[in-house]
Nucleic acid binder design. Structure first.
Lengths: 246, 246
DNA sequence: CGCGCTGTTGAAACTTGTCAAAGTTTGTGG
DNA sequence: CCACAAACTTTGACAAGTTTCAACAGCGCG
């Protein structure tokens, strides 16, 4: 019995590397696949890659041949203008896909950098296309994921185009909170993996403005900030900051 | 001989409604398809729809079942926040696709409004998925189109996040110019189909700021503006405004 | 021909950015 | 384990850019 259990655990440890047993499968590509389909996907998503904090997963201009599913860790993506200005275009966490922008030109158009030690599953794109020609649900789900990325970007455009500094930061915190919640973490308490400057870049603000907004939120009792440690004390208060009445 | 010619012209007029003879096929979905594949696409893209200036092609919240290729005309897409703020997320012209954002939730997430009398080809999405399971090149091209939309959105995020008012407007004009050029129109002279307010919404600026920037560009000899009629006099000048030295 | 929508321009108010200084944390090498 | 340097954060004072409010001009449509 003891023997048997041990061998079970060992094989589990191996199998766990596959989509079919990944605890992120509800957030990632495998969504809605049958058991048999999932096993075919396992085969596709066999390459893993570790990325150390601060290292690039890929760089703008590099040849594109795979998208990446984040297994664990935290990333930022960003583009760099010729005159040195750069913009963080997103922060990605476990279960989310990276590299969709590279399909269009067959080159990556942004940089993806790990904000903590991370692990990703590489998904060779041409094989994903092949498989999704055979598995209807996979195809459809992949289209949904790409579309969701477009919707997300529209949300950011909305944020950058119509909101003022404090509204942007409130929206940002609520979004993070929601995504942490979906992953089983606390909705109200988390560590920011990015600097004030990176937050500012994403939100179209200078780091000092981000810092001041944090301080203000704290003064008003909406959150407690200690460096990168955030506790949300008053969700409703933050939400109301997003839609000021005046 | 004369008879023959007439009959040729008549059949041409009919055939012209299909992708295989659409003069936008180099910009639209059919790209890279073989003759035979193109004919199968024709079958799919059989529904046309006229949209009058000011009318909605679709509204946020409506059920999604098709994407649209613009055959002629000009559209804007935008989202509306609960508190009344709205943001134009894009302007689309002939050969471009509308509705990709709807795939993710099976509902349209933005409004699409014609800025001039327009005609679109409706492409039933589930049939597009079927066909692209059979036609590899169509599948790949469609993925590229979605990805291109993501890249475009990142460009707008860059613009909204890092550029000041005049840089934004310069980038906007140069982008329009380039897209008109790709469609065989003059790169340096065109009519804006949208109001200052709509430009401002897209660029995250108030209409007065847009107006002032136009005036300034004119004073400095970069462009000539007369209401919606724009002539670009100095492309290099506009480009340099996008990347100020100081 | 006038009414409404759109666009232009000016002045003041407000928000955010810039510059500067000091405090805090983190990481590294001795 | 400590010391030091580097990176990050906070805060203040001031400057710059954008919005707001307001008035007016022009164009286009009924």
């Amino acid at each position: 019995m003891g023997q048997h259990k041990l061998s079970d655990e060992v094989s589990l440890a191996v199998i766990k590397k596959a989509c079919s047993n990944c605890n992120l499968r509800e957030l990632c590509l495998p969504l809605c696949l049958s058991r048999e389909e999932m096993l075919r996907l396992d085969d596709l998503v066999s390459t893993r890659r570790r990325v150390r904090r601060g290292d690039h997963l890929y760089r703008a201009g590099e040849e594109f041949d795979a998208i990446y599913a984040i297994r664990s860790g935290f990333f930022k993506t960003g583009v760099l203008l010729s005159d040195g200005r750069d913009q963080v275009t997103g922060f990605q966490m476990a279960g989310e896909l990276l590299g969709l922008d590279g399909i269009s030109t067959e080159r990556h158009t942004c940089n993806a950098i790990a904000l903590e030690d991370s692990e990703v599953c590489a998904i060779p794109f041409s094989r994903l296309e092949s498989l999704s020609r055979e598995i209807h649900t996979l195809q459809h789900h992949f289209h949904k994921v790409m579309s969701r990325e477009i919707v997300r970007d529209h949300g950011v455009m909305m944020l950058l185009g119509t909101m003022r500094a404090e509204e942007r930061l409130a929206a940002f915190l609520l979004n993070l909170s929601q995504r942490f919640t979906a992953r089983g973490f606390s909705p109200s308490e988390f560590y920011l993996r990015m600097t004030r400057e990176e937050i500012g870049s994403y939100l179209g603000l200078k780091l000092e403005t981000v810092s001041r907004a944090f301080s203000r939120f704290q003064e008003e009792g909406h959150i407690a900030v200690q460096q990168k440690h955030i506790r949300i004390l008053n969700v409703a208060g933050l939400k109301s900051l997003m839609h000021p009445s005046h």
